[in-house]
Structure formats: C-alpha cells, structure tokens
C-alpha cells in the first residue's frame, strides 16, 4: 500500500453559507421597501432603553418591528412588548451573535407587508456580531459613555463596518472620567467618515437626530 501526498486548493470563504442567507434577506427586504438595521454593542450599553424611547418617537412616523437577540431570557423583548412594540425574541442558546439564517427565518414570521423598518438588537458583544452579515442595510455601533473611550481602537472591525455610532448615556458625562473629545478622536482614527449621534434616552437629548437618521434609512430604501 502506498500513500501519495496531494495538495487540494480550496479557496472557500468561511462566511459563504452565512452570506448566502444574508443576500436572500437583502432581496426579501428590498422587494418590500423595508430597511433593516443591526444594532451592535457591549452588554449594558443601553440598547433596549434606547429602543424603548425610540419606539415612542418613531410610532407616528414608521411602522417597525424589533428582532431581539439574546443568549438567554426574554426580558428585553417583554420590556418592548409592554410598550406595544411588535417584537420577536431570538434566543441563540449560548451563541454570542446572530447569524443570517436565524434572522431570515424570524423575518418570515413578521407581517412584512405592514412594516417599513426592522431593528435587530444583536447579542451584546463587540467582536462576533461585527463578523456576521445578517442582510442589514447598516450596522449601528452603540457605545455608552460608561465604557472606555478607547473601545473603537480595541474593536476596529465593528467601527469600520458600522454606518453610524450612537453614543449613549451622555447625561452621565458630568459624573464620569470619560473624555468625550478623546472618544470622538478615537472613532475618527478608526473610521474618519463615521457619523456620531450623541443621545440620552433618559433626558431624550439627541433622540430627534437619531430618529431622523432611522427615517432617512427607510427613505433611502424606497427612494
């Protein structure tokens, strides 16, 4: 018996299967004029609170639904459902990010003909969700001022991929050592063109530019 060594050229992208589902989602949403946004942040950055306040302001402007990604529990989905938001919970059972196939299936359960916008709240994590295309129009990096201002330098992929940064909890700035100019400088160094919207979901400061940005995403989708 002889053994012959062979080199097999493969050149296969590891995201291939995921990207296929993402492109199916993109086609599905495009045909219906729906915009989809993918909110990515650390745990505790205030995504759900931001969405609670967003719901109140957006309700008169756009018909929207939230896909709530969590490792475990339905607490966040319940918070939004109490406000009358149409919300579906996606439990990843341990996985640290949402993948395109799961999102696609969840979308098919939504009344798509009655929607203008889908906001996906990804699992709280700055690394993995940035890797996975879920068929969104834009990734939104949510960063809170209670985190280190150098997060953009530590997690460059997210800040390269995102189309906007929402800087949350700015009402806390007077009480924190967080340097706003430094944070903005770090964001610029990673991605000079990235717009930053500063908000406080508690005082509602900055909520209007954020909601306007959301509405613009839908307009560019149907335009």
């Amino acid at each position: 018996m002889t053994a012959k060594k062979i080199k097999i050229k493969v050149y296969r992208d590891l995201m291939g299967a995921n990207d296929l589902w993402a492109s199916k989602t993109r086609a599905l949403l495009k045909a219906r004029g729906i915009a989809m946004l993918n909110l990515i942040s650390s745990p505790g950055s205030g995504k759900t609170t931001l969405l609670e306040q967003t719901a109140a302001l957006l309700a008169t402007r756009l018909r929207f639904a939230v896909l709530e990604g969590d490792v475990a529990t339905t607490h966040d989905a319940e918070r939004l459902a109490r406000l009358g938001v149409r919300v579906s919970q996606l439990l990843t059972s341990g996985a640290c990010h949402l993948e395109a196939k799961l999102v696609h299936r969840a979308l098919l359960d939504l009344p798509l003909d009655a929607l203008d916008l889908v906001i996906v709240e990804n699992v709280g994590n700055l690394v993995c969700p940035a890797e996975f295309d879920i068929g969104e129009n834009a990734k939104v990096a949510v960063l809170s001022v209670t985190e280190g201002e150098d997060k953009p330098l530590k997690y460059p992929l997210l800040f390269r991929e995102a189309k906007v940064v929402v800087l949350t909890k700015i009402d806390l700035l007077p009480h924190l050592p967080f340097s706003l100019p430094k944070c903005l400088e770090y964001i610029r160094k990673v991605n000079a063109a990235l717009p930053v919207i500063q908000v406080s979901a508690i005082t509602r400061n900055g909520m209007t530019p954020w909601v306007d940005w959301l509405a613009a995403q839908h307009r560019s989708r149907i335009g």
Partner: peptide, 25 residues
C-alpha cells in the same frame, strides 16, 4: 494624514488548501 481609507487586506477568512494523503493498493 487623511482618514478616507479603503481596507484592501486584512478581512480574509478562507480555507486556502488541504494537504491529504491518498491511499491506493
């Protein structure tokens, strides 16, 4: 010193090749 940069490498994630032994006989 501008910031309008396009990433041209560094996002790769693929299997390039496999080295296998083929047995016959």
């Amino acid at each position: 010193s501008g910031g309008d940069l396009e990433t041209i490498a560094g996002k790769e994630l693929f299997v390039e090749s496999l080295e296998v032994e083929e047995h016959d006989g």
